[in-house]
Amino acid sequence: MNSNNNKYLTLLSKVLTKGASLEEKEQLEQWTNEDSTQKAFVEETTKVWNLSKNYAEELPLDMNKAWAKFEAKLETKKAKPTLLRSLTSYWKAAAIIGLVATSLIWFATQNVAEAIPVLAMVETGAEEQKELTLPDGSLVLLNENSRLTYAKDFSVREVRLEGEAFFEVTKQNGQSFEIKTQTTKTRVLGTSFNVRAYAKTPVEVAVITGKVAVESIEEGTNASVILLPNEGVVYDAIANTMEKNKQTSPNSLAWKTQELVFDNMALENVIETLERYFEVEIDSDAKILNCHYTGTFKEPKLDEVFKTIAFTFPTDLDIKKVDGKYILVGEGCE
């Protein structure tokens, strides 16, 4: 219960039981007239109290003790069950229960209203990216099909991410910054890093600068890791595994930089990178997967990438498209 509201509930109980001083009465009156909701509460509570026929016993402030005391009174009344006393007990019960219930409902309503923050949400669709500046000055680049949610007042530096985003977090007097996904929490002070957390896929975090702590928030797990620049981690919630990589993939930020870099990379990894970047399915002969490829593509187009790879490949490479799927066929490398 809000301590300020609790103070005025105490004053109201004193006024109703005629135990309030003149100063306390004035304080309650001033508070009552400050807000229409507060005024309605005082008026309704007073009406309920008056139904008790001015039951002149001080209202206990401990709700549990009040209820226990009330039950004890009912047990006493059972010994002398007259109609008049039964009715009197009924009205006393109604008054106490009404006052307690009305108070609790009103305060609960106030506390709930105070507890629920006003949220801001930024979303992107297919092939759409958005840049935004958070209230603390941190910069976010949101990748396609993603959603970022945070409290507008940003009193706590915390965001929730569904999808992928690159963060440049500002330092703020040692206050941490947290990114929550469905299965992980990433905590930083001031740094730049990438978080990938699309539905039904492992969460990936890649650090560019600074220091980042990543931990699982799945029930029954306690996996965590500290990442330094150029380090990354992949958390698979289904397998409950957290794998730290000492060297991040050169293409972990390709969606942001619009550049693909292959430096003597195994074709198997090249294919994985192309599937992820272009959101396509690629099959190949197993015998060509051990071949390596080197090349850089700025603002890449898939057809151009395939043509360049086929032209510069150490052996003959044929690329076909069948039923929406790309198939790579060729001879293996020694």
Rank of each mutant, 00 (worst) to 15 (best):
G174V: 06
L189K: 04
A165K: 11
N240T: 07
E204W: 04
E131L: 12
K244E: 14
S216C: 07
I105R: 00
Y277I: 05
L274Q: 02
T308P: 01
E218K: 12
S36Y: 09
E75K: 12
L134R: 02
K171V: 09
I217C: 00
D62K: 00
R196Y: 07
Q27K: 15
N33E: 14
T37D: 05
A239P: 03
T102N: 14
N111M: 01
S146D: 08
K185Q: 12
T315L: 04
A286K: 15
T17G: 07
P314K: 07
T191R: 05
G98T: 05
T184S: 12
E127Y: 14
E43D: 03
E123M: 15
N33D: 04
W49Y: 08
L227G: 02
D35Q: 11
V159C: 11
V212W: 11
K185A: 07
V214E: 04
F313S: 03
L142G: 01
T76R: 05
A66Y: 02
E281T: 05
I271K: 04
L99D: 03
I97P: 00
E215L: 05
W255L: 03
L119C: 06
V156N: 09
Y198I: 02
V205C: 08
F262R: 01
K298D: 09
V140R: 06
N264G: 14
L274V: 02
T312K: 13
F177E: 03
K25A: 07
L142R: 02
T201W: 03
A40P: 06
I288H: 03
W49D: 05
L139V: 09
Q175L: 13
V305Y: 10
V122F: 12
P250H: 10
L134P: 03
K7W: 08
A199E: 13
